[in-house]
Write a protein that binds this DNA or RNA. Structure first.
Lengths: 139, 139
DNA sequence: TCTCAATGATTAGTTAGGCTAACTAATCAT
DNA sequence: ATGATTAGTTAGCCTAACTAATCATTGAGA
């Protein structure tokens, strides 16, 4: 088997375990993985429209609508109309900011634990490989 | 942001694109990602029981039951009773073997394309990092 | 030997989170 | 002004996961 195949085999093999662990960490906050994905995006990049979230998360717009509605109900994000009145700008509430920061701190611990003992240089290589694949996929 | 966090951020960010691409490749074979996961497992490791598939794929047993039922309907896997009559051994049919081989060949091309230009040494690093994380997660 | 807890698998029912198709509302370009 | 495009939503479907409960079989101990 080619090493490229080994890479993706390993990639998929580690996905469920890491997802399960992530969901365990999110459960006390009543959040699921995809909700967290959007919250983190809004934290890192500030408010944006549904369409942009969809693009960034590589899902269709209706999927975003549904998740954002839940996040609004939970008072983690809020929506304000844009000057282009078709647009709705979605951003974190104060509660949302706090929640994201708390979870990020918890995640940092988890992630460091999981990779504790890995050489930094290897980590950088791994990051580069995945960035590379993602750029290739976007074309 | 710590590099460990960057790693996992990048890891999750590449998941949807790569999954979408994989599903595109699987669609002509009328397969979905989770079905493919089980088919590949059976190809690499030979026949096994539902319980073992569940363990290996890190999902609950009822999830396996449902997917295997579909694969049996599609004549890709078959089930034979074990000497312990509670057990059912699940394995690829001849058709299943062929299908898996075909898809593996297609995937090899895709995977090599996606990583074309990456140094082999970097690839090895990335594989090691993910293996390492997976082992850590299993404890 | 008989009982009963443990194990393997299934059934039933629920949920998140994807999708497409079809829609409304607003904007833009002729 | 009007036709096309864009942003977002709604409705309805599907996959793929989950839990709880059930059935059948096994094996170990009284």
């Amino acid at each position: 088997m080619k090493r490229q195949q080994t890479f993706f085999t390993e990639y998929f093999q580690v996905y469920r375990p890491v997802l399960n662990r992530l969901n365990m960490l999110l459960a006390p906050h009543n959040l699921f993985h995809s909700q967290w994905g959007i919250l983190k995006l809004l934290k890192l990049e500030g408010e944006m429209t549904s369409a942009e979230i969809a693009l960034r998360q590589q899902v269709e717009k209706p999927s975003v609508t549904k998740i954002v509605q839940r996040l609004v109900e939970m008072n983690l994000v809020s929506v304000r109309p844009g000057t282009d009145r078709r647009e709705k700008w979605i951003g974190l509430t104060a509660t949302g900011q706090n929640t994201v920061e708390t979870i990020m701190a918890e995640l940092e611990i988890l992630y460091c634990e999981l990779l504790n003992g890995i050489e930094l240089e290897e980590l950088e290589s791994a990051i580069r490989v995945m960035e590379f694949a993602r750029k290739n996929l976007n074309n």
